[in-house]
Design a protein around this nucleic acid. Structure first.
Length: 605
RNA sequence: GGUUCCGUAGCUCAGCUGGAUAGAGCAACAGCCUUCUAAGCUGUGGGUCACGCGUUCGAAUCGCGUCGGAAUCACCA
């Protein structure tokens, strides 16, 4: 039960007792008290005036008095202009703190029993990944982990667009102009080499438009299964896959299931027939098949060409049907840019018309473009921000900043390398994920991604700082949370409280009765305690940005606490124990939350 | 032209299921390291929440309209 719902329930009782009226607790408005007022939570009394028939202040005073008299958890109140501010007791917060600090699964919401597939990345195999793909990949991966934290069973998937005219274009240019060049012979990453072919093809077509006919012939040969064409296709695709794997690995992205378009591009043809039988589709005299969506405010949409071949959406119809059936899905999330809003609107509509009840449980996570100061990225103008370059640049940036700070003297080269990667990637991921997915976001290549302020490194730094204090407190094993500790092979997986070695030496920790929390500590407990709610909110909105901003709020609050409290100087062992447990919990929640974003937190930096 | 999304400080972004005096970061300026990591903390300046009308006790938040920006409306994917 959240503090808000607790207060609402008590306030409901108060209203019943004082005014004899029944007010559903869930209809009461309880919010966090603004920091310029005294109190923890605020009940808005305006909506109650019709029942109480008193002024806002009198209403607030009456309810406040009743609550303080009848609820030991509520300490004090003040009523200001229709806002009843209530203070919860230290005992209440101590109990809340104790409960979450001892809960190893804190922040993991109970299972919903639902299975959801998340499709993201879905690259073309004719050019390397760029910043736009990076946003897609990071969002897809983070949303998957977010949904897991919210209790869903998640299957991460991607649909590789590995066939079609665009692929043939790269193949054609390679045959004509690359003299048998390979990633090995050129030392070039495979996806970049193939990308070069694609660029070269554009030039060729400009010089001589008739090359397009050759490319079309190549596509026909491919469809006919011509051995030579298929071999080349396979070979060049493999180069690209190897390149992608490297980039995915650097980004920390993985999939549970990979679909290839050459396997799925014929799917949906039966659905076209079925649609015709059901009268959902109509056939024009030239043989093309259409779905008339004009009565839904959209246009007519073609689902099969006059030559009998299928179009983009046909395959998506078939793939969706297959996926729901094969995986017994409850829902399906597609992480695809907002330029395809119309496509998904049409897709859902057609599936609904075909009678699939799951059509309404398809969710298009439509994210905004990443733009440069001068507008969209354009490959023709060479303004595309390459993913590999960017990752490399972030690494270098992290390295330079770390070396400047000079705090890593005793670290091995290998550890440093891992750390720079962690920080560089943390900065990049946070930069992208902290922005509301649906918004267009701006990236300025001239100004590198910041490491100060509301950034990934800021949160990583906060975590390293906490770890440093815990180390100095006598906690030998570093961080008192089993997942990280065990993952690093530092201890043999003992229970989380057991790894709090220092805690035992500093006396048994009893929250509540003996230890008084300071105002700052209560603020930290409040923010920590709201974490599960944030996970729920973020998942409902499919927005990792909610988690990112939560992490920032928590880290900032901790840093303020850190600066005004000498944690280790505390002589009272009970208070010291409480503080260590508190900051350990902060570190643990930061870790869980940032892991949802795919960001790791170092113990030193 | 139709549809959808967006417009908050100089810049990048929070806040949007209606609540009190709209918040951060960057940039600028002024402070804080013999004390647990200064990638930090504190302070100053900076706003017609694009504009108008409406709903409401109360609107950055909801509705309608206007202006500005983006995407999309292919027998491309």
């Amino acid at each position: 039960m959240t503090p808000e719902s607790f207060i609402a329930a008590k306030a409901s009782e108060a209203i019943k007792a004082i005014y004899g009226a029944d007010v559903e607790a869930s209809t009461l408005q309880v919010g966090v008290t603004r920091k310029e007022f005294e109190g923890d939570f605020t009940l808005v009394t305006f909506p109650l005036l019709r029942i109480t028939r008193q002024s806002p202040d009198a209403t607030g005073a009456a309810i406040g008095e009743w609550l303080v008299a009848n609820c030991p958890e509520i300490n004090a109140f003040n009523s200001v202009k229709g806002f009843l501010n209530l203070s919860l007791s230290n005992l209440y917060w101590s109990k809340v703190f104790e409960a979450m600090a001892n809960d190893a699964d804190f922040g993991q919401l109970p299972s919903t029993g639902r299975r959801v597939m998340v499709e993201f990345s879905s690259p073309n195999t004719n050019k390397p990944l760029h910043l736009g793909h990076v946003r897609n990949n990071l969002l897809g991966s983070a949303v998957s982990d977010l949904l897991k934290a919210a209790g869903e069973e998640v299957i991460k998937t991607t649909l590789v667009n590995d066939r079609g005219v665009h692929i043939c274009k790269s193949m054609y240019a390679w045959q004509k102009r690359f003299n048998g060049a390979t990633p090995e012979s050129t030392g070039k990453k495979g996806d970049h080499l193939v990308g070069d072919c694609y660029v070269e093809y554009a030039k060729m077509e400009k010089e001589n438009p008739s090359v397009l006919d050759d490319v079309h012939r190549m596509l026909v040969d491919w469809e006919a299964g011509d051995k030579e064409v298929r071999d080349l296709w396979q070979r060049m695709n493999q180069w690209v896959f190897d390149g992608f794997d490297q980039t995915y690995k650097a980004l920390g992205i993985s999939f549970d299931k990979t679909y290839y378009e050459h396997d799925t591009y014929l799917l949906g043809k039966e659905l076209v027939q079925e649609g015709l039988r059901k009268g959902v589709f109509v056939q024009d005299p030239d043989g093309s098949v259409w779905c008339d969506l004009t009565s839904d405010g959209l246009d007519r949409k073609i689902v099969q060409r006059s030559d009998g071949t299928s179009v983009y959406i046909t395959q998506d119809l078939g793939t969706a049907e297959r996926r729901f059936a094969e995986n017994n899905l409850d829902s399906h999330v597609y992480v695809v840019g907002n330029e395809q809003d119309y496509h998904f609107q049409v897709l859902k509509l057609i599936l609904a018309k075909l009678g699939f009840d799951w059509a309404s449980r398809i969710y298009h996570l439509s994210y905004g473009m990443v733009e440069l100061p001068e507008g969209k990225m354009k490959s023709r103008e060479g303004t595309v921000v390459d993913a590999d370059d960017l990752i490399e640049k972030m690494y270098e940036e992290a390295k330079a900043t770390s070396e400047e700070s000079g705090k890593l003297a005793e670290m091995s080269e290998e550890e440093k390398d891992r750390l720079y990667h962690m920080i560089g990637l943390g900065a990049l991921k946070y930069f992208i994920l902290k922005v509301d997915p649906k918004k267009t976001m701006l990236f300025d290549p001239k100004e590198s991604i910041d490491f100060n302020g509301n950034t990934g490194p800021f949160i990583q730094y906060t975590h390293a700082r906490i770890c440093s204090i815990l180390r100095k407190s006598g906690v030998q094993d570093g961080v008192p949370h089993k997942e990280t500790v065990a993952a690093r092979g530092l201890v043999n997986g003992g229970d989380p409280s057991g790894s709090l070695g220092g805690m035992k030496r500093s006396g048994s920790f009893r929250c509540g009765s003996s230890v008084q929390l300071s105002q700052k500590e209560i603020r930290l407990v409040k923010i920590l305690n709201s974490y599960p709610q944030k996970v729920g909110e973020a998942a409902a909105a499919y927005s990792p940005a909610v988690i990112a901003n939560y992490c920032y709020d928590l880290a900032k609050e901790f840093n303020q606490y850190y600066h005004e409290t000498q944690i280790l100087k505390e002589p009272d062992q009970d208070v010291l124990g409480m503080r260590l447990k508190l900051i350990g919990t902060v570190a643990g929640v930061l870790r869980k939350a940032m892991n949802i974003l795919g960001i790791e937190l170092p113990e030193r930096m």
